[in-house]
Deep mutational scan, measured.
Amino acid sequence: MASQGTKRSYEQMETDGERQNATEIRASVGKMIGGIGRFYIQMCTELKLSDYEGRLIQNSLTIERMVLSAFDERRNKYLEEHPSAGKDPKKTGGPIYRRVNGKWMRELILYDKEEIRRIWRQANNGDDATAGLTHMMIWHSNLNDATYQRTRALVRTGMDPRMCSLMQGSTLPRRSGAAGAAVKGVGTMVMELVRMIKRGINDRNFWRGENGRKTRIAYERMCNILKGKFQTAAQKAMMDQVRESRNPGNAEFEDLTFLARSALILRGSVAHKSCLPACVYGPAVASGYDFEREGYSLVGIDPFRLLQNSQVYSLIRPNENPAHKSQLVWMACHSAAFEDLRVLSFIKGTKVLPRGKLSTRGVQIASNENMETMESSTLELRSRYWAIRTRSGGNTNQQRASAGQISIQPTFSVQRNLPFDRTTIMAAFNGNTEGRTSDMRTEIIRMMESARPEDVSFQGRGVFELSDEKAASPIVPSFDMSNEGSYFFGDNAEEYDN
């Protein structure tokens, strides 16, 4: 783990906690998980779902989305002020799938948001429990990260689609708070800032007046979040320049895209947490497990152990491969979309394939898809080993990566060399080191050039047997250095459309 220093740990961010010791953190995270579980059980009762239907990941996603929508204050306010045809701002819903006479049927349900809020609060001892809501947002974000390569979004903001390893959390809503900021990748933060800068260039009043003052505060806050992700002084200094700019424009845009590229080699610290679907927490609570009393951590053995003992089902389209669908969801559960496939294969105990080789589309089923041909199958979400999630980018030494994705962002704290394609990355730096950030740029390029592919990161860190909950005997895996390590390699994943 990167030293926490003055930073709060993510469990504290996750639970809005002030400084807590490890036991208190485990208890408050457990409380959050228990609340999600209780809410899910109650919703299944309301909807009269069978046990099997309640364990269907598509039903879980609909129920999670309903509660997130019920608590989305800004959108609710907007919907009330701008009524649109056929949208009731006070209601929320989605597809629920039921097994009827041996076939899967889709039923569109509609609930009062007020009623959903009441059920959620009741499951969370009367609190709004925003930490639990954020947790579900991060699960949705991790699922998107594993399912889609955001080529269009990258290109629109002047970045290269091969930089997708920097895009963790790119679909997280803005209201996801400190826990959300911690899991956002460098590219995601750059993209958010670039969008602001572009608006400022096109709209003279963007930075002016009372609204402009708020915009400015948001801009500086985002700059500080991004600065905190960088691990070298030169990158941090460049972020200070971007933040202090009187009138952010093209120079800042250039600096930010430069920094994003540099992060492929001088990786930023991005938190990883295993956020599971509500249909995993519900049955665990129903079986009598007391998360608050037992304590829970999002970055240790607990999620692995929970998945070892969970039964989750998914709808499967006619030509999809259930094992591939399982891999997709497994990666999402562990926030591992940008991790090295060699490491993932070792931990999972079966070969993890790149996205383009998977015969599976996303987990969600569109409303126009034919239910007649839908089957369902068990998702295999178990693992051979477990490993500690990392909050750091690993040290800054790398190795060759593949054509589709030119770097990785480690999820697990496991000893290995970190793949990246130096030639491709360095070719993108057209040696432009003039301007006010020239000395920093020169320094950053120097550090990137001296990074050695064969150097090892996370020295001495290994994986653990599932029986080793105290992480007492690390097993340090050895990897084939020459092997392909990137998930979005030469990829044809669908595009994420909101």
Rank of each mutant, 00 (worst) to 15 (best):
G295T: 08
Y52V: 10
N483W: 11
A179H: 11
A70D: 11
Y496C: 14
V363Y: 02
E454P: 09
M66E: 08
G187A: 14
R98S: 13
T151W: 04
K103H: 12
G485M: 06
G460M: 07
L298A: 06
E449S: 11
Q4H: 09
N309H: 09
P354A: 13
K198T: 06
F458K: 01
I116A: 05
R156D: 01
I119P: 02
M426Y: 00
Q4R: 00
K91R: 15
P303T: 15
Y148M: 06
T92A: 13
N492C: 14
T188P: 13
A401Q: 12
K325C: 03
G268V: 14
P474D: 04
Y10D: 02
N247P: 00
E443L: 04
N205E: 03
Y10N: 08
G132Y: 05
D491H: 12
Q241L: 08
I197G: 15
R461Q: 11
T134I: 10
G200W: 11
A233D: 10
S359M: 02
G349Y: 03
A2P: 06
G349W: 10
T62I: 08
L358P: 12
D497P: 02
L56S: 13
G35C: 10
S165A: 07
A493H: 13
V183R: 01
L154E: 02
E114K: 10
K470N: 10
G86Q: 14
S383C: 12
Q241F: 06
H135W: 01
H140K: 01
P354C: 13
V280K: 03
A471K: 07
E372K: 13
E18F: 04
W207L: 08
L307N: 04
H82F: 13
D302F: 05
S297A: 15
A218D: 11
T424N: 12
N247V: 15
S482K: 08
W120H: 06
V456W: 10
T171W: 03
D112C: 12
D16R: 00
G93T: 04
I301C: 06
L341A: 02
G490V: 09
I388M: 15
E64I: 04
N142V: 01
C223P: 04
K7D: 01
C279T: 08
T232V: 13
F488C: 09
E484S: 01
E64L: 04
R174V: 01
E220W: 12
P303S: 15
K470D: 08
F253D: 02
A2M: 12
T390C: 04
E210V: 09
D51S: 08
P303K: 05
R216Y: 07
I301G: 07
A323V: 08
Q409N: 06
I36H: 05
K90I: 15
R204A: 04
V155H: 04
D480N: 13
L418P: 07
R361W: 06
E434A: 04
D51N: 12
N395D: 07
I57F: 11
R38S: 11
R355N: 03
L110K: 08
E115F: 03
G30I: 12
M331E: 01
R199T: 11
G86N: 02
E64T: 08
G180T: 05
E244Q: 10
G5N: 14
D439I: 06
E192Y: 10
V352C: 15
H135Y: 07
G94H: 12
E320K: 10
S359D: 13
L256W: 14
M371T: 06
E18K: 06
E53V: 12
V363G: 10
L466V: 10
F39K: 02
E252M: 05
V186K: 05
L306H: 02
D88Y: 11
F420N: 14
P474A: 12
A218C: 05
M191P: 00
M159C: 01
Y385I: 04
E294Q: 14
A428F: 05
E64M: 09
K348F: 08
M136F: 14
L298G: 04
S176Q: 03
E192T: 07
N492L: 01
G431M: 01
S262W: 06
N498R: 15
V456I: 13
E80P: 00
M137Q: 11
L358Q: 05
R19P: 13
H272C: 06
Y313T: 02
Q20Y: 10
A234P: 13
P318L: 14
D160R: 02
M426K: 10
P283G: 15
K357D: 00
L266P: 00
G37R: 12
K77W: 08
V100Q: 06
G5H: 07
P161S: 14
Y487D: 09
A27R: 13
N319Q: 04
G132D: 12
E495K: 12
V312C: 08
R106C: 14
V155D: 10
A493P: 10
R8D: 01
I217T: 07
V363R: 00
R342I: 08
M159H: 02
N395S: 09
E114W: 07
M238F: 09
S314M: 06
L49D: 01
R384V: 12
M222G: 05
Q231C: 07
S359H: 08
R436V: 05
N417C: 15
M66V: 15
Y281N: 09
T147P: 03
A131S: 12
E294H: 15
F429W: 03
P410S: 10
Y219L: 14
F489R: 01
R342A: 09
Q308T: 13
P322D: 08
G54Q: 10
L256M: 12
A123C: 11
Y52C: 15
G17T: 09
S392H: 13
G132I: 03
S486K: 11
H334C: 14
N319L: 15
S413C: 12
A131K: 00
K227A: 12
R389E: 02
N124K: 08
L466N: 05
E107N: 15
G300T: 07
A260R: 00
E24Y: 03
N432E: 12
A284V: 13
E73P: 00
D240W: 03
S287W: 01
E454I: 13
E73T: 00
E53Y: 03
K357E: 05
F479W: 05
M163Y: 11
R26L: 07
S69P: 07
P419T: 14
F458D: 05
N321C: 14
Y385T: 09
G268C: 06
G249P: 06
H140N: 08
C44L: 12
I57A: 01
E244N: 06
S383A: 06
E252P: 13
S50T: 11
T62A: 13
R106L: 05
L466W: 03
I63Y: 01
M163E: 01
T390W: 04
Q122G: 04
G490Q: 03
A146S: 14
I119M: 13
Y385H: 14
L108H: 15
S50V: 12
M331K: 07
N101A: 00
I425A: 04
E495H: 06
L47R: 02
N321T: 06
L226H: 12
P474W: 09
H272M: 05
T23N: 12
R19W: 06
M440H: 02
I265M: 12
S60G: 13
N142M: 02
P161E: 00
Y496S: 05
D340H: 10
S359K: 15
E454V: 12
R216W: 08
Q415F: 02
A472W: 07
K184W: 12
D72Q: 04
T437P: 04
L68I: 15
A471E: 13
T411Y: 05
A179S: 12
R243C: 13
R317F: 02
I119H: 04
M448K: 14
A387H: 01
Q308N: 07
E53D: 11
G228R: 10
S450M: 07
Q12S: 15
L193F: 11
I138Q: 09
L256G: 06
A271R: 01
V312H: 00
T134K: 00
A471H: 03
D128R: 03
L418F: 07
K48Y: 02
E107I: 11
A123R: 07
A27P: 04
F71G: 02
G209H: 01
P318A: 08
S402R: 09
Q58K: 09
R422W: 13
R246M: 14
D255V: 10
R382L: 05
C279H: 00
E107K: 10
G228E: 09
M167P: 06
A85P: 11
F304W: 15
M222Q: 15
Q4Y: 05
I316Y: 04
Y10F: 14
Q235L: 05
S69T: 07
E469L: 02
N205W: 07
I365A: 06
A403F: 06
G185L: 04
R243H: 09
V463L: 10
V270N: 12
Q241P: 10
S69Q: 07
F258P: 02
L358T: 12
L264P: 09
